[in-house]
Design a protein around this nucleic acid. Sequence first.
RNA 1: GCGCCCGUAGCUCAAUCGGAUAGAGCAUCGGCCUUCUAAGCCGACGGUUGCAGGUUCGAGUCCUGCCGGGCGCGCCA
Length: 584
Amino acid sequence: MKRHVASLLAQALASLRDAGGLPADVELPEIQVERARDRAHGDYAANTAMVLAKAARCKPRDLAEQIRAHLPESPSIAEVAVAGPGFLNFTLTPAARHEAVRSALREGGQYGRSQVGAGHRIHIEFVSANPTGPLHVGHGRGAAFGDALASVLEAAGFQVHREYYVNDAGRQMDILAVSFWLRYLQAAGEDVPFPAKGYQGAYITAHAQELLEIDGDAHVHNAAAIIDGLPDEASDPEGYLDALVARARALLDHGAYERVLGFALEAILGDIRADLDAFGVTYHQYFSERELADNGRIEAAVQRLADAGYTYEADGALWFRASELGDDKDRVLRRENGLTTYFAADVAYHLDKVERGFDTLVNVWGADHHGYVPRVTASLQALGIDPSCLDVRLVQFAVLYRGGEKLPMSTRSGEFVTLRELRDEVGKDAARFFYVMRRSEQHMDFDLDLAKSESADNPVYYCQYAHARICSVMRQLEERGMRVAADPEEAALERLDAEHETILLDLLGRYPEVVEAAALSREPHQVAQYLRELAAAFHTYYNAVPFIIEDAALRDARLTLVLATRQVLANGLGLLGVDAPEAM
RNA sequence: GCGCCCGUAGCUCAAUCGGAUAGAGCAUCGGCCUUCUAAGCCGACGGUUGCAGGUUCGAGUCCUGCCGGGCGCGCCA
């Protein structure tokens, strides 16, 4: 409908220009049509006349009048008015308003979906937490946001690929393997000390026990052979850890080291997948950094940067000239010890995404990674790729509150709330809705007590209750031996003239525009905001007007409206990964 | 010190590419269940959009400078 109005305006401008009402050389602006914020301003408003007034050397309101006079007739538009400083306000005909209800019921789960993104292939990478421990609440917002955004993009017709980048290479994997092995040895009865810098979590101990049950004592070495000759841990904890890794590699031969590492990785990644699954988050692909390295893709990417003339050697390392492309400083690609950096892998990863044919790359990152954006952008540019294809969505952390108290969050001390604990406490639906309710760049306070509360204060229940209430109305209807006339096309929607009904009709018609806007601006919170508004409009209507009444035609009209509302609630909640229950 | 994000009602947050009188919820106060779920509804109160300039028909939104909060500034990932 919005596009329809825009096209009417475009025709009017062309016709006005042909008639000499506009200078022939004037450049016609992009037509901007927006939903009127105020009902008194009709349904749609256009600022065309104000934008064009200066170039046309004409007063905005006069120009608006001329445009209005040249607007073609439309069966959807009841009235066009010039208002304020020069707005053109369009009011829809009742029939056009009713179309939303009929479309929602005709299209069902498809209502609100569009094709604006057709032809585009979007790669969206989110969460990508290191596979060294369980997901915590810091990852939760990225998960909820990324998944909802992917769904919203799909609804707008984009072809979306959801991916999790697994950092399963490098030193942290060695530390994981050693931590895991030591816990395994302890489970087997060996008295080995556990390093302070190892991964301390109980999840390691639990999975190490599983390895012992499966592989038996195949990887057991006595404690003395492991510790003898290692440097002093207290004076150099990192060096101690590296020596421990070297010792483990030496003792665990014939692939045993890889076995332990692989087992640890699979176990932890399995936990992460299970958590995400229970959170309603799914991926098309888990992309392994190690495979990238094993396939020579990292070396190839580094070589491409070198070929492009963007590298140099200094201090024994290979550097990328990031500072020539907008970054603060140059960045190391290959260290003095010959190993490539995490950044080098990331260059290769982004190059790989582009080579897989995606025209847009969306990265959902924690806000603490923002300093990393310029160097990735620079690398794309150096590789001859237009960096505007990359959109990094920075997600701010949410601070959890319980009983008015801020919950401590520190990864270092292991004092973090896991995503699983959050889900156990407030449920998947509340967690997901709360996370996407706010703009991702906005710092957020997450009130656990509120998310748990079964009250009107809780926006999740508020929206879900609206859906459940409609289901309840339908059950009541059936109990009284009535049904809604089967064909919504036949419903006498012209009987819906109460203010509450007009508001609801209006909101239902807006839904496709909300989804489209949320997709194009990549802001899924717009859907959450809309759903609260829709639920509020429904609850108001419910309290003001009885649905199950004697007048069959009016009853059918109202119930048809209500059924369409239920459909839109379900569709919108679905995009956010929140269930739409039939009863509370 | 430099860079990025944020600052909107007492609190948590919205505000459609720069659009018309800045909106919700909570809290506070006052109403509404014999009637489709009160997990709901109605009303009242509440604002110099951190401060000062600038850009223009029009600024919460864009630019500059301050103030305040968060994050980042490794041959870690």
